[in-house]
Simulated assay, not measured.
Amino acid sequence: MTDHDASDCLDPACDPCLTDQRQESVIRLERALLDLETSPEGRAGEWVDCQVTVDALDVRNLLDLLRG
């Protein structure tokens, strides 16, 4: 049995590919939040008026993971 190669997969409902996409989404969102938390404006723990832009697909993937 060979490892699944997501770059060659054309199935939008492929479980291994969806799992990989969801995990990548979580990592991207965690990094965005960490960047926000460690920004110079937020180091004192105060509220910061800033904007975090995330991909809608990342949000959907995260919600899919939460739904289980």
Rank of each mutant, 00 (worst) to 15 (best):
C17G: 03
L10I: 09
C50S: 15
T38F: 13
C17I: 03
R60G: 00
D20W: 00
C14D: 03
M1I: 09
V48E: 05
L34I: 09
P40H: 12
D58W: 02
L34N: 10
R60N: 01
N61E: 06
R67N: 04
P16L: 06
L34C: 03
R43N: 04
R60I: 01
L62Y: 10
S7E: 15
R22E: 12
D8M: 11
C17L: 04
V59E: 07
L36P: 00
C17H: 01
L10Q: 10
M1P: 05
A56Q: 11
R67I: 03
R22C: 03
Q51L: 13
S7K: 14
V54Y: 08
Q51I: 10
M1G: 12
R31G: 03
V59D: 02
W47H: 09
D64K: 11
L65C: 02
D5P: 01
T2R: 13
L18G: 06
L57H: 04
D55C: 05
W47Y: 08
H4E: 02
D11V: 05
A13L: 13
R43T: 08
V59L: 15
L33Q: 06
L65V: 12
A13F: 13
T53N: 07
L62D: 01
Q21K: 10
D15V: 13
A32M: 05
E46D: 13
L34Q: 14
R28C: 07
A56V: 10
L33A: 14
T53Y: 06
E24V: 02
A32W: 00
A6V: 08
G45L: 04
S39Q: 09
L62A: 11
M1R: 11
A44Y: 10
Q51G: 04
E30D: 08
D64Q: 14
D3R: 14
C9E: 11
E37A: 15
D55F: 00
V48C: 11
T53S: 13
G45S: 11
L36H: 15
L66Q: 11
E30C: 09
L33M: 15
P12T: 08
A13I: 02
D8K: 15
L29C: 13
S25I: 02
S39H: 13
P12K: 04
R43D: 10
D49C: 03
R43H: 05
T2N: 11
L57Y: 00
P12L: 04
R67P: 00
V52L: 14
L33C: 12
T19S: 08
N61L: 02
V52A: 08
W47R: 11
D15P: 09
A56C: 04
A6T: 07
L36Q: 11
C9H: 08
E30L: 09
R28H: 11
